[in-house]
Design a binder for these strands. Sequence first.
DNA 1: AAACCTTAATTGTCCTACAAATGTGAGTCA
DNA 2: TGACTCACATTTGTAGGACAATTAAGGTTT
Lengths: 242, 242
Amino acid sequence: MNTLDIDDTDLEPRSVVDEVVEQMRMLISERGLTIGDQLPTEKELCETFGASRNTVREAMRILKAYGIVKVRQKVGATIVDNRMSSALGMFSFNVMEISRETFSDIQGFRCLLEVSSVEEIFDRITDEDLADLRLINATMLETEGVEAAAEQDFLFHTRLVRILRNKAILDVYGLMKPVILRIIQNGKTRHTFENETYYEHEAVIDAIVARDRIAYQYRMKTHLETGYAHFRETGPFADDPT
Amino acid sequence: MNTLDIDDTDLEPRSVVDEVVEQMRMLISERGLTIGDQLPTEKELCETFGASRNTVREAMRILKAYGIVKVRQKVGATIVDNRMSSALGMFSFNVMEISRETFSDIQGFRCLLEVSSVEEIFDRITDEDLADLRLINATMLETEGVEAAAEQDFLFHTRLVRILRNKAILDVYGLMKPVILRIIQNGKTRHTFENETYYEHEAVIDAIVARDRIAYQYRMKTHLETGYAHFRETGPFADDPT
DNA sequence: AAACCTTAATTGTCCTACAAATGTGAGTCA
DNA sequence: TGACTCACATTTGTAGGACAATTAAGGTTT
């Protein structure tokens, strides 16, 4: 099989709606519009782009879904920045779990960020970082419920990535939060967090303290793969009577 | 006015489109639809929800923007999971200026993606990948102008990252394209591309062919830092002491 | 069986019309 | 003057119809 399952989705002919979205993006950029500014009315956009109102409206729906604009009747479209909440919102589609593909992709990404970056982490880590990690891990035990524990678990890994002192990486990690949270929660119970996750985190911290690169990479990789094992057992569509 | 005070907060009356989105969500949940399954046709959805086709289409646009469904003519709407791509895609609307820190952060990120991932790249690379890389690099010489060469340069690195077969990482790399292009282009001339970049790329490919991990990491790291050096010499923040 | 053609179903875009919301300004009154 | 009322105009929200573009499916021919 020569089929690459990655780029088979890239060859779609762009629809008029997509074109309009692109033109709106350029319009925002060219006019230097920023948060609080108004976009032209639908009618004006129709004339500017030579598209029908339906098309313009569908394009505007995309911007709204992205959290780029807020539209009110009579007032029109105002530029906002609710992208973060929109990003979180799209994962509130609880009905559908994360696909296996997405899951393994994200885990691979995390592996790169948290395991392969061992040199940078060891270079930059401070006592304060270590203290924070211990504290966050201890706090996880005191939380109540699976969700709170997962939140704290995510915070642990975020704090670890923060050691890289790289805002771009940290932002991307934050973007992936909804997905990672689901991955973390998948197939776990309070018991899992208290008897497995906690000690795996401690083992990782210990490896850092001992400046043991091999141990760190092994333990972190194992830790991440443990989550994957849970995922495979319960599957992405296990119906959970909550 | 009888309705006053209280909620200046976010208590917006939900539009019919929002209702339809919610109903679609429930429909997916109730029928247990999962990735690969088909949604009803627009016509059926209109009848089911008692809404007009425009309304259903706008709702569908939201799902598409969320990366929940993929729609093709004649075929209809298929459930997918491109939410990560969508979440990242919404940040292509960034109008914010690029700071010096961002540049170095991005370079650090690229270093992690392209240098530290050496094991995964060596594991997965195929002859087709190598042929593509050679072709892209050769094509760079035949382009005209600095911008076209930079585009091809970026394509080379994208193709390299694609070897990881990780959609999340590829999406992130695509997200950084505007910034990376600026980094690549900065302070370079046609001469630079033809006499430095080209040979650096070839050296990287040769290292892969020889399965020489050390050489690969050294050459790639040097290559990335060379670009950054150009940036620091002539870039907008050249004399900025940190 | 394979290649080609026809058909029908579905989405993509455009159009018009009206409803709903709301800022604007003229007009009124204290 | 100042504040209040209210009709009006503008803009977005929804509905419904028409046709184009695409393509899966079935039928026909070689």
